[in-house]
Design a protein around this nucleic acid. Sequence first.
DNA 1: CATACATGTGTAATCGATTAACTACGGTCT
DNA 2: AGACCGTAGTTAATCGATTACACATGTATG
Lengths: 321, 321
Amino acid sequence: MKDVAQHAGVSTATVSRVLNGHAAPTPETRERVLAAIEKLGYRPNALARSLRTTSTQTLGLVISDLLNPFFAEIARAVEDEARSHGYCVVIGNADESAEQEATYVRTLLDRRVDGLLLCPATDDPSLVREVSAGGVPLVLLDRTVRGATCPVVRADGSEALTALARRLVGAGHTRIGVIAGPPNTSTGRERTDVLTGSLGGLAQVVHGDFRQESGSQAAAKLIDDGATALVAMDNLMGLGALGEVRARGLQIPHDIALAVFDDQPWFPLLDPPITVIAQPTVEMGRAAARSLLALINGRQPDDVRLTAKLVLRGSLGEAEL
Amino acid sequence: MKDVAQHAGVSTATVSRVLNGHAAPTPETRERVLAAIEKLGYRPNALARSLRTTSTQTLGLVISDLLNPFFAEIARAVEDEARSHGYCVVIGNADESAEQEATYVRTLLDRRVDGLLLCPATDDPSLVREVSAGGVPLVLLDRTVRGATCPVVRADGSEALTALARRLVGAGHTRIGVIAGPPNTSTGRERTDVLTGSLGGLAQVVHGDFRQESGSQAAAKLIDDGATALVAMDNLMGLGALGEVRARGLQIPHDIALAVFDDQPWFPLLDPPITVIAQPTVEMGRAAARSLLALINGRQPDDVRLTAKLVLRGSLGEAEL
DNA sequence: CATACATGTGTAATCGATTAACTACGGTCT
DNA sequence: AGACCGTAGTTAATCGATTACACATGTATG
């Protein structure tokens, strides 16, 4: 910057003013400064600028797993929305581990992100409190924690789940295997509660960890126990369950019915296509980013609750008639 | 930091030494400082530290599309490797757009990442030159550019592609539709050249843009032209092609054979499972991160060339016998 | 013609860390 | 006792920007 100033025959203050679009500098001065910048290939140091202004124009996003397309889509939407407001997003991968999640959150805070979007790995509120105590704007996404005091953006699957339950029961299924998420996550618990509630005593629950492998294992156990229908509570466990069903040579929906929470681009391509409960991922991501930006700008956004929808495709068999 | 120093009755220099594990401070002083840090909940400002040390312990990774599982896996691997060396990764999504790619690269440079990993959207070397001119360590990943002067990490699919070609020809296919990547990307061009080369005059090429929609369109065109086998040059176009095949009610492999470049967890679950050329994504990501770290540490790593493998699963029909 | 005021630019403090150079202190050795 | 040395800790410069305040110049006003 000093070099630029020297080249243009002005002070660094003036260079800074030109850079920041202040009204002060003469068009002629501005011209000279811009020429010098161009000539020297100068690029301002964002670190220094942020240090001085205490604003990084950056949002932190901590998610459980980038390989999970559900989170990848959310990340993508967050990024789009943030970018359109001049913000950058730094993504942290927590790998469904509370410890790694905490590490990432702290790293992001150390780098002074202007705000944080968090999909908490567990419903333990201590990390959330730590962030809030630091005074950093925080919005929870997809999942919440016990006694959360910050805005939350999530999808409500209750309606879709009860509709699904009604169809399964109506089709005469009496042993319905539920491949549930971890009970210490809000989404894991809530979805399972709603579904088992609507299924009366027909549900048999096995808990997984939102990963493919656990989906296979849970499916195996449930099939062994005589389940005639499976409901996987997220797409990775759905993938695992599907693998197990195929490995056993069972036909969907003839031998067993299957429904999955979360949609995937390839679900319609299976034979039969898989019936799902689709979450509005893009909307969730955008809404979360907007809420966070609002918070950063001193407004107090409301919680956002979007609706997940049941998409019938055929993998339930007669239940879909 | 000043507060901590005051609390512990020392100067900020001493606090800094404790923080950075210098030998100087007495165990007793160290103890006092740590206590003060704990008590005040002090966390060092990474921006200030980086400004002073000119090192951010951060790598930039610019990829074409986070929603493409191929890149998501790479990102994940890069991150793992980087983290194990105490580095953070900031991911930028270029969306297969050269312009957005350039924007992201510049943003990352402005933030003074210690090194940059780039999957170039096109083979135009100007952006690469710009980065190199800035003296920032740079490694290219998956794709290269014309006259690249920096280390490159990529997968070689030639062997797998010729093997695939041999099988298709051997099975008597005479009209083989190739859904190619953009000709201005190195991977797009090379893969297509190798395959069409080995297919003699039997190949019919339609170019897509590495996205699902273009895969459907290309497949439609090729099927209309009487192709009896399709080869999609990346997984998203493969997904599109598969959709088109299904939409027309064609049976794989009876009516048409299909092979896809890039593997996906759900390909084995289709009926029949899809034959693919699998790239070692995790190895690619790790290798790229390692090369970049080497470069940052003043070493001069060699190019890395890993091997993609043909995985036969059944979607080629008799060609797989 | 002096005074007030607007305007464009420069000076220097500041953000929060690191670190070279210096000081103070105590202990050894002749 | 005096010279010398090692060690623990302080002072202050520095990284590269922003910005309050001061200053100089030019124009309008009484």
